[in-house]
């Protein structure tokens, strides 16, 4: 193994070809094909917007709340798609694992690539939507990719860890589905953090330290409005800023180490 071999020629070819195949297969046989991928966060947004913004009057105090909400649903869709595809990657490609020798992490990475492509296109939709909504473009938009990368690293770490366990214990995917449901409410997607902060500052702080929440808030801050609560402006403490990043790196390291050890026996256990 080791770093030099991580992306040697053969692995690069394999990663590219598997990504292409995944992408083709996913949207084949459906009438709207690839459009579905783009429509998913938009439709989720439409439903949430009607229920929460129109009926329950959430986010009236936030400028550009629709864009704010759409950013949240887009990043959330990306995270859930990345993790669930990553976790199932080994089972989907069991035939390859049983018959060819290759570094298995390629499976997890290629499975998440479709989500990355979808996100890139969806972010363009978000930007167009923001411009229509009257958000002024600014240089801070350039920071967005870094936060997206942070979210991707977290999703990849979860994919490695849970994906490796899922080879042996197939319950993991069902458990993760439940976790995703719970996480959705633990992350400020539909509700603004201000709503929590008004009742309990501690709760708001805990919610913000979740890397998913931190990323969503930071993207909103840099993309839409500086009237967004972020870890940075809420804690006023550099140590707090590091916590979500430490969590992300810890998940990735544990995931990578465990995956590397477990992957030696994937061919026997799959």
């Amino acid at each position: 193994m080791g770093i030099p071999r991580v992306l040697n020629k053969r692995n690069r070819i394999l990663l590219g070809e598997l990504t292409k195949t995944d992408f083709k297969l996913r949207y084949q046989g459906s009438v709207l094909g690839y459009l579905w991928a783009l429509l998913r966060p938009l439709m989720m947004f439409a439903i949430l917007y009607i229920v929460f913004a129109k009926l329950l009057k959430f986010g009236n105090d936030i400028p550009h709340y629709p864009v704010y909400l759409l950013t949240g649903t887009t990043l959330w869709s990306f995270f859930t798609e990345c993790t669930s595809q990553g976790i199932q990657a080994m089972l989907v490609r069991g035939d390859l694992i049983r018959k060819v020798s290759f570094p298995k992490y390629i499976l997890v990475v290629s499975a998440t690539m479709t989500a990355v492509i979808n996100l890139s296109i969806n972010l363009v939709v978000v930007v167009v939507f923001a411009l229509i909504n009257g958000v002024h473009p600014s240089l801070s938009w350039l920071l967005v990719p870094f936060f997206v990368l942070e979210l991707y690293v977290l999703a990849l770490g979860i994919g490695f860890l849970l994906g490796a366990i899922n080879v042996k214990y197939r319950d993991i995917m069902s458990i993760w589905d439940v976790c995703i449901q719970a996480l959705f409410y633990a992350v400020p997607i539909i509700y603004p953090v201000t709503m929590i902060a008004n009742t309990s500052a501690i709760a708001a702080k805990i919610i913000l330290l979740n890397p998913i929440a931190q990323v969503i808030q930071d993207v909103r801050y840099n993309l839409i409005t500086t009237e967004t609560i972020t870890v940075w402006n809420y804690f006023q403490n550099p140590v707090a800023m590091i916590i979500p990043i430490v969590i992300v790196l810890a998940v990735l390291s544990v995931g990578a180490v465990y995956f590397r050890r477990a992957s030696k026996f994937f061919a026997e256990e799959i």
Binding site: K9, K24, L25, L96, V100
Partner: peptide, 24 residues
């Protein structure tokens, strides 16, 4: 190995080739 019934012959050739280490 890796042949997929939902892909065309052409696509399968490139995928199978990639598993043998051949670039596009």
């Amino acid at each position: 190995v890796g042949f997929n019934p939902e892909l065309t012959g052409r696509e399968n050739v490139y995928l199978n080739g990639a598993l043998l280490g051949f670039s596009h």
